[in-house]
Every structure is written in C-alpha cells, then in structure tokens.
Amino acid sequence: MSEFTQLMVSGVFTGMLYALLALGFVVVVKGSGVINFSQGEVVVLGAFVVSWLLTDVGVPFWLGVPATVVVMMVVGAGIERFALRPLQNESMLALVMATIALGSIIRGLVPMIWGDGLRSIPSLIDQRRYEWFGISIPTITFWSAVMVLILLVAFGFFFSRSRLGLAMQAVSDDRVAAQSLGINIRLVNAVSWAMAGGIAALAGYVWGSLLGVDSRLVVLGALIFPVVILGGLESILGAVIGGIVVGLVESFSAGYLNDDLGAGFSTVAPLIMLLLVLFVRPYGLFGRPEIERV
C-alpha cells in the first residue's frame, strides 16, 4: 500500500512538472494556432540562460530567475517576429516546419555558446527531500508544483478578466472574426510567444535543477505531446490535468509494469496512451469537441 501511495504522490508531483512544460506549448496554440515543435528546445535555452546567470555571472536567485524570464520573453517575441510573422499567410505545414527549423537552430546555438559539458544550477534550499508520512518528495519538485498551481490561477485570471487575455481567447476561437472586431492579431501572436518564452524560462530552471543542464534535455520536448493530446491542445487546465495523468501513468508503469513488458516501458507508456486518446477522444479531455473528422 505504501508503495502505491508513494508511486501516486510522485506521479502527481512529476506530472505537475510535465504540465509546466506543456503550458508554454498550450499558450502558443491558444494565441497563434501554431503547433510548436520547438518548445523543448526553448526550455533548454531557458535552462542554459538561468544556469549561466546563476553560476557564471553570479547573480542571486531572486534576480537571476526573473531576469531569465524577461530574457526568454524577449526571445519568444523575437521568434514570433522574425521567424513566424513572415510566414503569416502560409499553410499550417510551413508554420510547423518553421518551428522544427527553430528547434534545430537552438540545438546548434546553445552548445556553441555554452559548450557540450554538463552544467548545474545551484540549489536554493539545502534540504533535498521532504519526508511526510513516509512519503518522500524532492524539494524542488514540491515547490515547482506549487509554482505551477500559482501560474494556473494567474493564467485563469488573465484569460477571463484582462482585456488582452480575452482578446487571446477570441483569437483562439475564431481568428477571422476576432480580426474583424479590431483585435490586433499580431500583438496577440507576439504576446503568446513571449508568454511561452517566460514559461520556458521557469521550466528550464525547474528541470535544469532536477536533471542538470545539458543539451540532452531536449528529450523533454517529446513529453509535451502526450500531455497536450490528453488535455486538449488549447486548454490550460487540461495541460495540468493531462500532466498529472501522464505523471501517474509513468510512475505506475515504472513501479508495476516494467519487468513484464520490457525494461523502460514507463517512457513509452504515455506515448501509447497518446495513441489511444487519439483513437477515442482526439480533442482531449478538455479540448473543444469541434474538431472535424475527415
């Protein structure tokens, strides 16, 4: 039983970290409709920037992390301005390809600047794990989950209360109608990419603290898709719940199934779930069921 509880709790908390990765992706789909295959790379870039600021430059944590968020927001907006806006009226195929190209550029750029070695992010809290009722959770995972919840609430308010947030909702509902009502689509696109950059900075900090910073972190990019397919490509709440479900699937399959199905089954279990969801409920648990079947 305690094994079960431990697996469940770690699944939920790890799932919140997956949600953090997926949030940046979802915001871009919401604001600009683009399926972004480079979010994993943007997160890696964020991790390198934050590790560089905190270790090489020696900036304190309270300044380094917000500074990274700002830098990455600028990067996000820059991506939108210089790579995607010129393709504004092209097919979705071209936009998706552009994000794959961006991923390639970041993958080459990062080790050219920072080298191929493994870097680390200094930890803020000495204690590495919390032990509660016989269940152990890494400190960083716990506080990251708290951060995800705060972000979730903040986004909730942003999208339902602020003018810009409502404009983004409108754009994601119907781009043409929104445009004809005088909503500045370019601004919405830019803001959504900037937000994705900012979220990537936080995700980079969290995942970099957990795993160490090197270019192999790009494998994280593949974890985004099961989460967003499950939660719905453009639902923020869906991303969090999708993340938790994926975390649980991974944790339980690592705990109970690995030996029977072949080692390492836990990494592909979420992907198999992704296929099943596509078969049964392609718009996700929280997406809008208006997706057309052909």
Binding site: T14, P138, L210, L211, L223, S266, T267
Partner: peptide, 15 residues
Amino acid sequence: VIPAAAADVDAQVRG
C-alpha cells in the same frame, strides 16, 4: 533499467 530517454530517474532510484 534506466530508459535511454528518461528525464527523471526517481522510480529507478527507489527500485
């Protein structure tokens, strides 16, 4: 076994 693409090895550590 640690999967080649595992981002997190918490389960393997416990194992």
